[in-house]
Design a protein around this nucleic acid. Structure first.
Lengths: 160, 160
DNA sequence: CATTTATGTCAGCTTTATTGACATAATTTG
DNA sequence: CAAATTATGTCAATAAAGCTGACATAAATG
């Protein structure tokens, strides 16, 4: 049932000219960022679904492995999500033995998060295809120039 | 009610050493991509919520403005989502006058998508803060070297 | 001792995606 | 021309990942 909202022909309000670089806006790089990230995050999906996990689990596993012992508050700050969003995902990772909680030594209210061996292995397994993609994309760019790419990406991040 | 799952101390299975560059994996750039994209996409959110829209609407408005006249199938292929996912978002954009459908000239089954003036303005409004962020990130990198950044991003995209 | 902080949990809601099934109209093919 | 395929739309059910608000507990802090 093709939509009855379709016009037979364009009208006065129809814009037919492609939006392209005016006002110094580089639409090309905006799109490249979209496509690059879309494909970059698609790599781990197959691996994750084997454990019944999603991208939210990936992010938690990644940062727990990168900064073992970080508190729940630290993790929330890094991911910029709410504790209620984290709750389900974290609970699943703990129950299935990928992440452990250890009572904080100075502050016993804190739950410090650590990976298990299984959690470390998962993190590595997820990082491998992403690393392969990055290596491929850096192919033909010499190490001195690769610094510029990191500098650019760092510049995209909010300073705060 | 802090979790009773927390251990008092680490055990044999607790991994305490940070996951860092082994196997030639550059975890730093993996994280930079995450943070860069997280903040890059956060810019348009405030603008979108004024119209009651989300990121899915942003992507549709963007590509309809960049390639006026593209078919629904083209859009699905670009976004890599299903038509059922697109349906609601597209319907809302059409009903609120940001996007128009025009019957295909050769193939009258096709619904060719065009922005309205209002749709064009929204697309530009959303692109501005993203462009500002990119310009800031490119600051201090000379134009010749900026090509490398695009080359890198292009290399991250699946070829097919 | 009162307050604040770190964490957890319950309930309900939203957005964005999915799969599967089916309908319509237009094009293409035998 | 009749049959099959294609482009689109829609209904229903479901899932993942986020949100707000409210409330509870235990530990730290004033």
């Amino acid at each position: 049932m093709p939509s009855e909202r379709a016009r037979k022909v364009p009208d006065n309000d129809t814009v037919t000219c492609p939006m392209s670089d005016g006002e110094g806006i580089d639409f090309n790089i905006i799109e490249l960022l979209f496509f690059a990230y879309r494909d970059f995050t698609s790599d781990p999906d197959v691996i994750l679904s084997k454990s019944g996990f999603g991208r939210a689990h990936h992010r938690v596993v990644h940062f727990v492995n990168r900064r073992p012992g970080l508190s729940v508050a630290d993790l929330l700050e890094t991911l910029k999500i709410t504790k209620q969003s984290l709750a389900r995902v974290l609970k699943q990772l703990i129950e299935s033995g990928f992440v452990q909680q250890v009572e904080g030594t100075e502050d016993r209210r804190q739950r410090c998060l650590y990976p298990t061996q299984k959690g470390r292995e998962l993190a590595l397994e997820l990082a491998r295809p992403q690393s392969r993609r990055i290596t491929k994309a850096l192919n033909g760019i010499d190490p001195g120039e690769q610094i510029l790419i990191k500098k650019f990406l760092q510049g995209m991040v909010d300073s705060d």
